[in-house]
Design a protein around this nucleic acid. Sequence first.
DNA 1: TATCATGTAGAACGAACGTTCGATAAGCCC
DNA 2: GGGCTTATCGAACGTTCGTTCTACATGATA
Lengths: 225, 225
Amino acid sequence: MASATRSSSLSGRSSARVPAGQGSRFDRRLAKILEHATEVFCEKGYEGASMRDLSRASRMSLAGLYYYFDSKEKLLYLIQKYTFTTILERLRERLGGVHDPEQRVRIFIQNHLEYFLANQKAVKVLSHEDDVLKNGYGAEIAAIKREYYRICLELVDELKRAQGLEFSSRIAVLSLFGMMNWIYTWHNARVDADAGELAREMGDIFLHGVCRGGAGPQAKRVRVM
Amino acid sequence: MASATRSSSLSGRSSARVPAGQGSRFDRRLAKILEHATEVFCEKGYEGASMRDLSRASRMSLAGLYYYFDSKEKLLYLIQKYTFTTILERLRERLGGVHDPEQRVRIFIQNHLEYFLANQKAVKVLSHEDDVLKNGYGAEIAAIKREYYRICLELVDELKRAQGLEFSSRIAVLSLFGMMNWIYTWHNARVDADAGELAREMGDIFLHGVCRGGAGPQAKRVRVM
DNA sequence: TATCATGTAGAACGAACGTTCGATAAGCCC
DNA sequence: GGGCTTATCGAACGTTCGTTCTACATGATA
């Protein structure tokens, strides 16, 4: 018996926060398993990773794992839910008190990239195993994602209103998400800049485009044709 | 015996072109199987799709499939190679004769999006099953991809030179790829614009940013802070 | 010391996996 | 008509899959 539907702060019914250092013994153990599972899912993909891989990574028997959650799918759900909830929570904190629309968009980018680079494996699992979850689990994750998208859309709309601009918010926002999310396919900590620098550069591209001079000082445009 | 190492234009040793209407009977049959497999891989992912799924989709027995290729992995390789080769080929044709740097970047975007939307399932398999292929197969696909990236990098460098701009080409190009590739996660033929329109809007964002007015007429900027 | 919830593991379950085998038609050349 | 090649199939191979059953420790409580 037991497993993740028990009354636990990470899993079942309650709040779903676990910074991996608090909570009951059960919660701490489960959080560790989630960390290992994230790594394995990241490397082999959800379908490609077997429960035996997870058991090896967690240094626990196959059967022992099932004490902490009741299926492989639920494990993925727990990872995705925790990751997404955390991003959203931090974003809300950071946006509080800032009112300049351009600054608010930049904060969104900064928050997104910072979390993405600090938790690269988790967000790869989030991005890559996007439509694996079925029914209830899938719907719940999709709802959180929709909310996150909605916030970004609102920020862009604020910007449009404030600056009297006219363009498709949907395409702009989805393009921005593309820029940011794609990072998990190419970012290399040894050669690429950190989150702050990347956020600035991507913010420049999104807001002003490469032709306006991106990272460098304002450049004069020399039209060719 | 036989299977895809035979002397065939799609598979083994030779040129790897098959517009699915030419070639030997063997090639035409294999091309059909590849189409079905693309659809199944797209829906269930490479690992998630079983050979039995493919056999059902192709309306051919499990054993019958193996007459045309020698492993599931090779099948994925054939799909990816054909798709990528085609994009690259079309790009080269279109760039010929155009010399304005901005126009050349726009052609790149247009070509990419056009193919992506016309072959959404194939490119999803391309993007999503990026690091599944091992050793020889993986290396070959990676090489084609590198070449494609190199071309885009060159286009952006041309633009920088022509307009006297200063920014990180690497980040700009990878951001652009992100914008464009992410499309497979959200594009909906019933509500979203076609490739031409999308290419224009993404080109505007990449080149001039949303603050310069994206799709609409040049907008005046109203600074708030 | 007996009892009880908490953890953990070995061994096995049936199902599904990718792949191979041997047989069997149908069409072609001699 | 006999001997190739091409194309297809049912059945099975050995392996691995996610999951479950049962037993056995451990430490706290009574």
